[in-house]
């Protein structure tokens, strides 16, 4: 007899214990029974869902959020400082201004026509 047949014959003699199988079925049944019982009980007792109130609440909350967002944007707009190029130009030093405005000695007059 070859190895394959020997192994097959050997494993054929191994069976799950009947006692274990029956106990397992009983436990499964009880587990299933209690789970289903709980589900059915919960369905019967559960109060009706307040669909309308929930939607009203969602809409009110959305409106409040939008209003808040709008107000914050508006207040930011009031507080902003607009960019004005003239104000940001750095003033030249006073000495430079004086030098530029004082008449120089060596100014050559344009030749008279």
């Amino acid at each position: 007899m070859n190895l394959k047949h020997e192994i097959k014959n050997a494993y054929d003699s191994v069976h799950a214990p009947q006692e274990l199988t029956e106990r397992m079925k009983r436990e499964l049944y009880q587990k299933d029974y209690h789970e289903m019982e709980d589900e059915l009980t919960c369905e019967a007792v559960r109060p009706a869902k307040p669909h309308g109130a929930r939607y009203v609440f969602y809409i009110a909350a959305s409106l409040a959020l939008c209003a808040g967002l709008g107000l914050s944007v508006w207040s930011l707009r009031d507080q902003r400082t607009d960019y004005k190029p003239g104000t940001n130009v750095q003033m030249p030093a006073v000495s430079d201004v004086d030098a530029a405005t004082e008449p120089t000695q060596n100014v050559t007059e344009p030749p008279a026509a």
Binding site: T21, M24, K25, L28, Y29, D32, Y33, M36, E37, L40, T41, A44, V45
Partner: peptide, 23 residues
């Protein structure tokens, strides 16, 4: 808690598949 008479029948139906697999 309320008790339901439907539970045993449903349990038998739900366990059936596993019982068949066990067998």
């Amino acid at each position: 808690m309320q008790r339901s008479e439907e539970a045993p029948q449903t349990a038998i139906r739900m366990s059936g598949m596993t019982f068949a697999a066990v067998d």
